[in-house]
Amino acid sequence: MHSNSIPITQPWSLAIEGFITHLKASGAPATTLRARREQLQHLARRAPADPWSLTADELLAYFADQTWQTETRRGRRSCFSMFWKWGKRVHGAKNIAKHLPKVKPAAPSPMPVPPPVYEAAMRRADQRTKLILRMAHDAGMRRGEIAVSASWDLVQDFVGWSLVVHGKGGKTRMVPLTPRLAFELLALGEGYFFEGAIDGHLSPRRISELAADVLDAPWTIHKLRHRFATDLLDAVGGDLLTVQEACGWAKADTARHYIPVPLDKIRQGIYRAREVEPLRAVEATA
């Protein structure tokens, strides 16, 4: 039986919906509500007991059994921590999530999609998927931001078209669009750009799946954001604040996870620091 077909018990369903209602009352955006519900449902289908009788050891065993990437693991731990803190306040339950080990942030590993990989993916993609790839590559949008984008987010000024992007934590930012991307989005007409069954639009997961179908492994739609950030930083002469605003980063040092430092720049810096002329350096190794 597929794991998603395993029924969720009533105690779990009631607990999850109660927690989601709490988050909604606090002003959490729809993307956060959907993510938290999916994270808890994943646990609910695999947990050996109902939420308020589950033990710390059982939760730890579930946590250890998953093959998540580091940032996914950090996100799940955060979700479970919030859920059981809420359960302690509302239901008097023990906060078993506090026994989960802390997960260190992943080391920066920027991987901008190489241009030939992007071009090959565009040749394979249908029109819908091409537009999805272009929104990540040309506007630096996350999969969740692409999923909820709609015609009413398009804004025109005296220079061109921009898009109101609905980012993490309910934050929005304005991203200028290339003329070609603006034309393609305008041609879609009224409504969500990618219609689907979830609140009228495709889910972020489906956006990723469509991109993965045409991108060579190990490249992903998120790595197209790495490409966007890397190219933009070079185009604006190293102005990191501009890149931060365009990408919707809360902190500028997030750039370390997106933008690699080219080896040739490191080499040039070392040569300048040690007063070495490039030609002489080559001759010395010949």
Score class of each variant (00 low, 15 high):
residue 57 D to A: 10
residue 169 G to A: 05
residue 282 V to L: 15
residue 263 L to H: 08
residue 110 P to N: 07
residue 46 R to P: 04
residue 160 G to F: 07
residue 72 T to P: 10
residue 46 R to Q: 15
residue 54 L to M: 08
residue 70 T to S: 09
residue 264 D to C: 06
residue 91 H to N: 06
residue 146 I to H: 06
residue 68 W to L: 15
residue 15 A to G: 05
residue 48 P to D: 03
residue 169 G to L: 02
residue 286 A to Y: 12
residue 228 F to V: 08
residue 24 K to T: 04
residue 29 P to D: 15
residue 166 H to E: 02
residue 48 P to G: 10
residue 254 T to P: 00
residue 189 G to Q: 05
residue 97 A to D: 07
residue 16 I to A: 03
residue 192 Y to H: 13
residue 184 E to W: 02
residue 251 K to Y: 10
residue 21 T to Q: 14
residue 179 P to S: 03
residue 10 Q to F: 09
residue 79 C to E: 01
residue 60 L to Y: 11
residue 257 H to Y: 14
residue 61 A to Q: 07
residue 225 R to T: 09
residue 34 R to E: 15
residue 58 E to T: 01
residue 217 A to L: 08
residue 98 K to R: 08
residue 215 L to C: 09
residue 168 K to I: 02
residue 88 K to A: 05
residue 80 F to P: 02
residue 151 S to D: 15
residue 50 D to E: 13
residue 15 A to M: 09
residue 258 Y to F: 07
residue 268 Q to G: 13
residue 80 F to N: 05
residue 70 T to E: 09
residue 13 S to T: 12
residue 226 H to K: 13
residue 29 P to H: 04
residue 28 A to T: 03
residue 139 A to I: 02
residue 227 R to Y: 08
residue 285 T to W: 08
residue 277 E to Y: 05
residue 107 A to S: 09
residue 145 E to S: 04
residue 116 P to I: 11
residue 207 I to P: 06
residue 117 V to T: 06
residue 251 K to N: 04
residue 200 G to D: 03
residue 84 W to L: 00
residue 151 S to E: 14
residue 249 W to E: 05
residue 54 L to H: 02
